[in-house]
Each structure stands twice: as structure tokens, then as C-alpha cells.
């Protein structure tokens, strides 16, 4: 078995387009949970509407990709309002169930016959992002030692990581302002913030919209990067990935989602690649682990990751142990 292969695969996973896109979505989730304390378990819903905003605009309505992007962002805002208006007055755990239910309802509708003329139903839509790749400044592949990135991939990565940096910067500025102070106060204790004259509902809504837009951007980027959308790819598992990433890196840390995503994808691709390599080379007998199991084991890993992190290190890698002791909720 070729260990260098496994390692280079893992490195490519750690810095590749998926890692960037998931980091971006996690930045939005971090604004929700890390800084505002919103238990959003329907983040994939924002990604769904962002992705379909782009896809439908181009494929169904024949609009420009950039208009589609704006429509996708608009859809995220509308979704945040629809989800937020009824649920943001509720206790946190209700919000969690309402958001996961909301995202599922959305997926059901996007894949339904009714929506099929617009969304393509269960088949989704394809080939709508040529405008994006037409702008690709890279003309050749990049080789870094054993790492090989195609020009196309490089372009998606560049845009993806740039967006991650830009949104993280924005979140940094926001959180280190009086606005961010109110947000953190809401996270700690809503009633206290309200007793000091803060319109908690409005702040939660602002956070939900902003984080939702970032999630929508991530969704749009997935759609663009893969040139395809399919409702069933936006299932609740994606949200759980994002939670694992955010908590791994450290919720309420600016760099948490970035570090979390890099480590997460490194581990995920490493293990994936290792197992495939090991079974292929006969190091692990196919009796023990066969092809389809490898895919399922990834989720076993995500589940364990989430569980053990929450038990032993709820503040994540970047978390402040001092804060950890104060986390009484």
C-alpha cells in the first residue's frame, strides 16, 4: 500500500474545495450558535435555497449566473425570516427541532412533483455554472510535490477560501463591536439582555439572516463547483457535518470553523483513502470491511467525533478552558 498516496489525498481533502465550502457554511453556523446561541439544526436548508437560487435562475429561467447568486442570497434571507419569525421567540431546543423540520420540509417540496418543472424534482439540475468557469484565470494544473490540483479545482478553491477569509473577517469585525456584545449577551441569557433594553428578537433575527446568507453562499458555491444540484444531497447529514466541524474547531472562535474544516476533511479523507488503499492492497481483508461499509463508517466517525468532543472537549481545539468551566447550560 502506498502511504504517500494516502497522505497526499488527505492533504488535498484538507485544503480542497469541499473543505472550503464546509468551512464557509460553518462560519455562518458559528455566527448562529457560537456567538448567538441559536440551535440551528437546519443549516442545510440555507445551503439548499442558495444552491437552487443559482441553479434555477440559470437553468430554468435563463438568467445570468450572477443574478442567480443574488437570487440565492435573497432566498436565504427569505428563508431566515420564514424560519425565524415563528421560532425565535421559542426556547432554544424548540428552535432546533423547528429548523431541522423546516429544512426537511423544504427538501420534500423541492423534490416534489409540484416543484419539478422549476427544480427538476428528484433529478435536480445540471450544467449551469459555465459563466463561473469561463472566468477561471488558471490555465494549467498545479503540482505541489505529490499534490495535484486541476485548474478548475484551483479556481473553486481560490474563490472558496477567499470567501471564507472575507466572511471570517466580517464576523470578526461584527463580533468585536457593541453589536457583537449584545449577540453574546443574548447567547448567555436572553432575559438579562431583554431586561437591559435590548430587542433580543431583532438581534437573533439579524444573526439568523446573516449566518443564513453565509450558508446560502456556501450552498451556491457547492452548486457552482459541482455544476449540479439535487435535493437529496441537502439532507440533514450535511448539517451534522457542519456541527462536527464547528465544535471540532471551537464554537465562538473566529478561526474555529476554518481549522475545524481543515482537520475534519484531513481526517475524513485520510481514513477514507487509508481504508480503500488497505482493502485494495489486501492489508485489511474484504471480509472485515467492504466497499459500501467505508462510506457508512465515515458517518460512524462523524457521530463519534461529535459525541466524544462534546463529552471531553466541548470548547473544541481553539476553545478557552476558562470559558469551558463556565458553560453551565
Amino acid at each position: 500500500m502506498n502511504f504517500m498516496d494516502v497522505l497526499s489525498n488527505a492533504l488535498r481533502g484538507a485544503f480542497g474545495a469541499e473543505a472550503a465550502i464546509y468551512a464557509l457554511a460553518a462560519v455562518g453556523l458559528n455566527l448562529h450558535f457560537g456567538f448567538t446561541g441559536l440551535l440551528n439544526f437546519g443549516h442545510v436548508g440555507f445551503m439548499l435555497v442558495g444552491a437552487y437560487g443559482v441553479a434555477v435562475s440559470v437553468s430554468t429561467w435563463g438568467l445570468s449566473l450572477w443574478v442567480g447568486l443574488l437570487i440565492g442570497i435573497g432566498c436565504s434571507i427569505v428563508l431566515a425570516l420564514i424560519l425565524g419569525i415563528p421560532t425565535l421567540r421559542l426556547r432554544g431546543d424548540y428552535l432546533a427541532i423547528a429548523t431541522i423540520a423546516g429544512a426537511e420540509v423544504l427538501r420534500y417540496f423541492y423534490r416534489s412533483d409540484w416543484a419539478a418543472p422549476i427544480t427538476g424534482g428528484v433529478y435536480g439540475l445540471r450544467q449551469f455554472a459555465n459563466e463561473f468557469f469561463a472566468l477561471n484565470p488558471y490555465s494549467s494544473n498545479l503540482e505541489l510535490g505529490p499534490l495535484l490540483f486541476s485548474a478548475r479545482n484551483l479556481w473553486v478553491m481560490t474563490v472558496g477560501w477567499s470567501l471564507v477569509v472575507l466572511t471570517s473577517l466580517l464576523v470578526y469585525l461584527l463580533v468585536h463591536s457593541p453589536w457583537g456584545r449584545v449577540l453574546r449577551a443574548v447567547r448567555e441569557d436572553e432575559l438579562a439582555a431583554r431586561s437591559l433594553g435590548k430587542n433580543v428578537y431583532a438581534y437573533k433575527m439579524q444573526s439568523l439572516v446573516l449566518g443564513g446568507v453565509i450558508g446560502g453562499l456556501a450552498g451556491a458555491l457547492i452548486a457552482i463547483a459541482t455544476q449540479s444540484v439535487n435535493p437529496d444531497n441537502f439532507n440533514p447529514a450535511v448539517t451534522f457535518y457542519l456541527w462536527a466541524i464547528m465544535i471540532l474547531g471551537g464554537a465562538s472562535r473566529i478561526l474555529g470553523p476554518i481549522l475545524g474544516s481543515i482537520i475534519f476533511w484531513f481526517l475524513a479523507t485520510f481514513l477514507d483513502s487509508f481504508l480503500r488503499n488497505a482493502t485494495a492492497s489486501g492489508l485489511i481483508s474484504p471480509d472485515v470491511i467492504s466497499g459500501p461499509d467505508v462510506g457508512a463508517l465515515r458517518f460512524v466517525f462523524v457521530g463519534l467525533c461529535l459525541l466524544l468532543l462534546m463529552i471531553y472537549r466541548p470548547a473544541g481545539i481553539l476553545g478557552d478552558p476558562k470559558e469551558l468551566r463556565l458553560d453551565v447550560r
Binding site: E18, V44, T226, N233, D272, V300, F301, L304, I311
Partner: peptide
Amino acid sequence: GTASAAVVGAAPATGHHPAALTAA
């Protein structure tokens, strides 16, 4: 906690592409 390290080391085995990027 002693078990956790072993578990993390052993179980994480991962599949093809992530859910959202799997092509049909």
C-alpha cells in the same frame, strides 16, 4: 477517557464523497 483515544483511532473510516457533493 482512556477508551476515547482508542475509539477515535479505530473507528473513523470514511467513504466516498460527502453527502452534498456526491454526484448522482
